[in-house]
Design a protein around this nucleic acid. Structure first.
Lengths: 322, 322
DNA sequence: TCCCCTTATTGTCAGATCGAATATAATCGG
DNA sequence: CCGATTATATTCGATCTGACAATAAGGGGA
């Protein structure tokens, strides 16, 4: 237990251990016409990505380059999501590992310079069960719940049964529990484990139709997307990142619709206004919106100064507990 | 803008782009006798780490192996922290990039199997300004504040001056602002930017004495530690991770002291109890503690069941806003 | 012009939560 | 038996939250 090699960080250039192929990959999100959208490239459902090259000073800058090259979209806000590096995470033939450093990026659709081999897709195409904005749970959710309970029951021993059942109940809001929109990743992983999504089974089991279980993506991109959705849904609650997705000027209802699009649930209008205003996140422009019927709405802009004034860590924004 | 290579994730085995050296690195934390401690190896202040090798199924498992090998400590709870990959982040001679995937791990000191070339250090040795448990700010904080204001004033244009001053004021709680214990990383990065920590200046400027500016670490390990501290300080507020650091059985005061050690600030005792109890995080063992003077305290154990019962995302634990 | 429909904006109210402070209980050492 | 020490239980007011109600300001059609 003592004669092992002690490695102080930066030595050992002799062996090939630690060499690996490293990719940068982006979950680029915008909200277009009240729909939360994902930027994909090519025909298949693929996230923009590219190798992390030596000429890149930082992964962020490398990522900006790749995304702009592949989609024509300049990226604004970027944050690191997660590094995926499990050995068998891509259907690999070779004996080389692929490491993907993933990022969450926020933009607006209008910022594209040109159309290209890329496109926007509502992220609810990939996760139909996540959209609860209609007030009632989306169709198909009950099918998934039923199949998940089947899967739980199919476990060998009773302990595993109960444990599976518990996880399903929490993640999918069964048994008097409330729906928690932040559990997107957990839900996807359960569906994957239960082979209820296409990419999971390897053709063995038969998942529900795509209208219920959603569109699959290349490799593990859907998992990466789920990671991004989860992160964004939790982040909008304590950091004013929504504004990265808004036009320079907007009405409070537009802001609310954007938050609702991301969260996949409805918010009480007066309460939302109260929260936004008492936190002084926005200021009136003086103009009003030419709107679609009804009283004209005041236009607001984001008070960028709040980023300098406050430390957003543990504070609160819209959306509270159920 | 259109004729660029579209890379669907897993191709391009031809060029060496994307090849890099990948390390796994761990911030291993325990709380020993009320002090939050970091596990280091060797003589210098170095985090346990090792290359991510092909035989590792996942980075987590690789990390467990390296840490156990280098320190004799089995790891319990692990979570990914951040992937550091900037080109010049290590004083590099070669033209090869080093990517470090960092993890936060929680253990207890007693779980060591044998002593070895490793040791525990209070993390406040590295960040003396972070320990506010005495009620009053630690000595030296005012020195840092003063030097930071100097640095802000030294900026070229007034805009940069104000921007620097704002950041300093928020991070270090100047000007009526409250101390926010979650800003550890921001504080470290400001000190680095202002060349007030040893590893920053490259010998150019003269940082304050170590008693004020803290002990340096190898390469950028101190930044990685700061990332870990920040993560842990925010995480204890919404997930019951503290219990990973507790003995199987403990008194509520011990639990409180542990949280205080991590947060670097004092908590009101009755309120802490109320929070812990009403969330049903613990259950009585029936025994009481043979303690050091005063009425004996009931012993509790963590109710592991809560992990299955509740979805910890957005919920709350101890420590509230100031 | 007036009525009605739609959306915007403001206000109310009860319950939960939070921070602070107080009161009571149990043990130990003299 | 007293007082020092720590544990545990309670109270109170301020604030925050969620649900809901009420009023304001436009547009369109009768």
């Amino acid at each position: 237990m003592e004669d092992r090699q002690i490695r102080p960080g930066t030595d050992g250039a002799d062996d090939k251990a630690g060499e690996a192929k490293v990719d940068l990959i982006a979950v680029v999100v915008a909200v277009n016409d009240g729909e939360p959208c994902l930027l994909t490239i090519g025909e298949a459902d693929t996230l923009p990505s590219g190798p992390f090259a030596l000429e890149h000073r930082s992964p962020q800058s490398g990522l900006r380059g790749w995304v702009e090259q592949q989609t024509g979209h300049p990226l604004g806000y970027i944050e690191q999501l997660y590094t995926f590096a499990d050995r068998d995470r891509v259907g690999t033939e070779r004996q080389q590992r692929v490491i993907s450093i993933s990022y969450l990026a926020l933009t607006r659709k209008e910022q594209a310079t040109a159309s290209c081999a890329c496109g926007w897709h509502s992220w609810y195409e990939y996760f139909p069960w996540e959209d609860h904005r209609s007030g009632t749970p989306p169709e198909g959710l009950d099918i998934l719940r039923a199949r998940l309970v089947e899967w739980a029951d199919a476990a060998g021993d009773p302990a595993t049964q109960r444990e599976r059942w518990q996880r399903v109940a929490i993640a999918f809001g069964i048994d008097e529990r409330h729906w928690n929109e932040e559990l997107t990743l957990q839900r996807y992983e359960l569906l994957y484990e239960a082979a209820l999504v296409e990419e999971a089974s390897g053709g063995k089991a038969t998942p529900p139709p795509a209208a219920v279980s959603g569109k699959a993506m290349v490799a593990d991109h859907r998992r990466i997307l789920a990671t991004g959705v989860t992160r964004l849904r939790s982040k909008i609650k304590y950091r004013p990142v929504v504004f990265e997705l808004m036009r320079p000027t907007f009405t409070l209802l537009q802001l609310q619709r954007t938050v609702e699009a991301l969260a996949g649930r409805l918010i009480d209008k007066p309460n939302f206004r109260r929260l936004v205003e008492q936190q002084e996140l926005v200021e009136e422009t003086g103009d009003t919106s030419v709107d679609t019927g009804g009283r004209p709405a005041k236009l607001y802009r984001f008070r960028r100064a709040v980023l300098d004034e406050r430390a957003f860590a543990g504070t609160k924004l819209p959306l509270s507990r159920a």
